[in-house]
Simulated scan of single mutants.
Amino acid sequence: MSKSDELPEESLLHAYVASGDYLDVFSVSLEGRTDLQTADMRVVADHMLNADIGWMKSLLAMRDKMAVPLGMKTTADLARDQRAGPVTERHAGDRIGFFKVYDIREDEIVLGENDWHQDFRLSIFRTSGDRPRIFAATCCKRHNAFGYLYLALILPFHRKIVTTVLDTAVGSPVRGVQVPGLAP
């Protein structure tokens, strides 16, 4: 089960976060999930960001309807820029789901988007060893009053989405990869 956590010291997100930015971090154990412990971080991100969570898709659709009149980017606008081909061939500047990839390392991928009201980054960071974990950290840089209002309105949903995505990703098999003990 996921929990609120601290951003690991090794995370690239530390270089992005500034005083006054919003930052939250959640994590979940990867014990028993050797596939997620060893998978390419682009595969891990794809598995997490494309989790089939019906109520989350409904919330994003509702957000998109409200975003259009406000001049905000919609998930469909962003996803249109996604390059075809295997996710393992995506690099900085490409997209996974509707998220732009900013950096990829062996145990971390940083994704996000810039918009007129706020810029955000999502770090998916993995630790190994005796207690392997996956961390999802979100940093928001608000540019104006609407950025502050928008973040205040979405935070309760954001937290539920992140924890649900983490729990769902760790509890479900990665597409095309068999994991002993997990139903396909």
Rank of each mutant, 00 (worst) to 15 (best):
F135Q: 01
S172L: 08
A51P: 00
I154M: 07
A169R: 07
A136L: 14
G71I: 06
D119R: 03
M72H: 03
L23Y: 11
V44S: 02
D119H: 03
V68N: 00
E31H: 14
V28F: 03
P132A: 00
V177M: 06
S172E: 11
C140W: 02
G181S: 08
K141M: 06
M1C: 08
W55L: 09
A18K: 14
S172R: 13
L155M: 12
K160F: 15
D103S: 11
L151S: 01
D94T: 08
K160H: 07
T88S: 14
H14A: 04
P180I: 00
M56G: 13
D40N: 06
Y22C: 12
I124V: 15
D94I: 06
L182C: 09
G176K: 05
R33Y: 08
L23W: 08
I109Q: 02
A51S: 15
F26M: 13
L13N: 01
A67L: 11
K57E: 07
S27F: 05
K57S: 09
E9K: 09
S128C: 13
P69F: 00
P86L: 01
R159F: 06
R159S: 08
V28Q: 05
T168L: 07
V87N: 02
F135R: 11
W55Y: 11
E10S: 14
L36W: 02
R95C: 11
T74L: 06
M62K: 14
H91C: 12
A39Q: 07
P132N: 00
A51K: 07
W55F: 15
A76W: 06
R126Y: 06
S11Q: 04
L36P: 07
R175G: 10
Y16Q: 09
A145I: 10
A67Q: 04
F26S: 14
R42Y: 08
M72T: 04
H91I: 15
A152S: 12
S2P: 02
D21E: 05
A15R: 13
F125K: 07
H47Y: 04
S2F: 02
T138W: 03
K100A: 10
A84T: 11
E10I: 15
S29F: 05
S123P: 15
S29T: 11
R133E: 12
R63L: 01
H158S: 09
P184F: 00
V174L: 11
R42G: 02
N144K: 03
V162L: 12
R80Y: 11
G32P: 01
A92Q: 12
D107Y: 08
R175S: 14
L122Q: 04
G171Y: 10
K73T: 10
D64N: 15
H91G: 12
V170T: 04
M41C: 04
H14P: 15
M56S: 11
S2I: 09
H117P: 13
G20N: 06
V25H: 02
I109N: 04
R42K: 13
G32A: 07
L182E: 08
G54Y: 10
P132C: 00
D103F: 02
G97H: 01
F98C: 08
R133V: 02
I124T: 00
I134S: 00
V170R: 07
Y102E: 05
T164S: 14
C140Y: 10
L7I: 10
V17K: 15
K57D: 04
Y102P: 14
